[in-house]
């Protein structure tokens, strides 16, 4: 039962991550899906799940932009920011916020339980 319960929260977090990253694009919104992952009991799992879901959801969304690769190359030329950093920086921030959010809410929930 608990497994199903966790899977449901994983799915909610994944869907929310995709929707929030795609429709709003503000990194701080990763707090919301992260909060749902806070219910997972094991600290290491909820934090790593938060990071993986946050990071992958935004990086996978890049696939929907047909010119991303060329725009990143041109942006690298203009700004001097390396290509890989341009692609990775937002997913990393999004992932870390989601992981921190999962960690934060997990600690709060655990603390309340105690």
């Amino acid at each position: 039962m608990r497994r199903l319960y966790y899977i449901a929260f994983y799915i909610i977090a994944i869907i929310l991550s995709f929707l929030l990253a795609y429709y709003f694009g503000y990194a701080f919104l990763a707090i919301i899906p992260g909060a749902f992952l806070g219910v997972i009991e094991k600290r290491s799992i909820r934090i790593s799940a938060g990071f993986v879901i946050g990071f992958l959801s935004s990086i996978l969304l890049y696939l929907s932009f047909p010119s991303l690769h060329l725009i990143a190359k041109e942006t690298q030329l203009i700004s001097g920011i390396p290509y890989s950093a341009l692609i990775a920086i937002f997913p990393l921030i999004f992932g870390v916020i989601e992981a921190s959010s999962a960690g934060f809410f997990g600690e709060v929930l655990q603390w309340k339980k105690r």
Binding site: Y22, A27, L86, I93, I97
Partner: peptide, 21 residues
């Protein structure tokens, strides 16, 4: 990161980004 990340909205996979062109 929420504050810092605001500066990178233009790199997000959203419709506010530079990637739509």
């Amino acid at each position: 990161l929420s504050i810092f990340g605001m500066s990178f909205t233009f790199l997000s996979p959203s419709r506010k980004s530079i990637w739509l062109y």
